[in-house]
Amino acid sequence: MNARPVSPNTVLAEDVPAPRVYELNLYRPYFELVAAGRKTTEVRVKYPHLENLAASDHIRFSIKGTDEACLVRVLAVTEYPSFEALMDGEGAGSVNPTSTREQQLANIRAIYGPEKEALGALAIRMELA
């Protein structure tokens, strides 16, 4: 077998790390929006286990206690100091196209208290894999 010369600027498949797969749970209404491709931004608190989440990683969303799962590819991760700043930066329609900005902020804050929000908010832009 003849080996082809490789340019120093060439990135070989074996040089690219395999994307990591994160396992995260979603409530059913949000899961259904992700699975339908309508929810393109997920909101999370910047917990230590998500600090290294990056573009090209994957997330397997599931509904706790079921076998239902949906795989997405991460396109970008942006950190914001608050949920309000995240909504202003990302737009409420990408987070939940069925709810107003104010309702979404209320729902997010019902899930994550002020001590969690203080850790930082992550906007995870994604597409179905």
Rank of each mutant, 00 (worst) to 15 (best):
V34H: 01
L12V: 12
P48Q: 05
Y47T: 11
R38M: 04
Y30P: 01
P19A: 10
P17M: 15
R4M: 15
V16C: 07
T10D: 11
H49F: 15
G37V: 05
V6Y: 05
D15M: 06
T41M: 01
S56E: 14
N52L: 11
A3V: 14
L12W: 09
V11H: 02
T10P: 00
D57Y: 06
V45G: 02
V11T: 10
Y30N: 06
A3P: 06
P29F: 06
L53G: 01
E14P: 02
R28C: 08
D57I: 05
R44T: 04
K39S: 03
R20F: 10
A55E: 13
A13H: 08
A54K: 10
E14S: 14
A54S: 14
L53I: 13
E14K: 07
L24T: 08
L12M: 10
D15E: 10
L26Y: 00
Y47W: 11
Y27G: 04
K39I: 04
L50S: 03
A35V: 04
L12T: 12
E51Y: 05
E51P: 01
P29N: 11
A54I: 09
K46I: 01
L50Q: 05
P19T: 13
A3S: 11
V16E: 14
V21E: 14
N9H: 05
L33K: 05
A13G: 04
V43E: 02
L53K: 03
P19M: 11
N25A: 13
A13I: 12
A55P: 01
Y30A: 06
P29C: 08
R38Y: 00
N9S: 10
G37C: 00
A18K: 15
R44D: 05
V11G: 03
P8G: 04
V43I: 05
S56N: 15
S56D: 14
